[in-house]
């Protein structure tokens, strides 16, 4: 007989128990670490950047127009000055050309130096100039 008659005398055996501190929690939850901002955030950020960019482009276009206006007017203001200077030179060349023509054609009777070949008083610039 192995079994003792006395119940107070126990055999040396180990009861299977949970580890100290208890079992760790069962991993039933999904493990999804943070992978950066959400799609909505990225979309919002891209939209914001694009909106700012287009705003700047619009401002730039308006500004470009004004810069062009400034450039054009700076040239318009200089037109009379440059035209006056060019006119003096053109007039000098014309007078000299008529003088040359007079000298060359002095023996031809009835020749009118400097006369236009057109029957119209409208001014036409010379077809060719003598570079002097």
């Amino acid at each position: 007989m192995l079994r003792s008659a006395n119940p107070t005398v126990s055999l040396q055996y180990r009861q299977d128990m949970p580890p100290p501190g208890g079992f760790e929690a069962v991993k039933y939850k999904r493990n999804l670490p943070f992978r950066g901002p959400s799609g909505l955030v990225i979309l919002g950020a891209v939209t914001a950047v694009c909106a700012y960019g287009f705003y700047r482009v619009g401002k730039g276009n308006l500004e470009k127009r004004e810069l062009q206006r400034e450039k054009v007017w700076s040239r318009i203001h200089l037109v009379p000055l440059l035209l006056a200077e060019g006119d003096r030179d053109a007039y000098r060349r014309e007078v000299a050309a008529v003088e040359r023509e007079k000298e060359i054609m002095k023996d031809v009777k009835g020749w009118e130096p400097g006369k236009s070949v057109y029957n119209n008083a409208r001014y036409r610039s010379a077809e060719s100039i003598v570079v002097l």
């Binding site: 009379p80 035209l83 006056a84 200077e85 060019g86 006119d87 003096r88 053109a90 007039y91 014309e94 409208r122 001014y123």
Partner: peptide, 10 residues
């Protein structure tokens, strides 16, 4: 448009 026409103004 004649260059001789506006010499004075020029």
């Amino acid at each position: 448009r004649d260059p001789g026409h506006c010499l004075k103004e020029g």
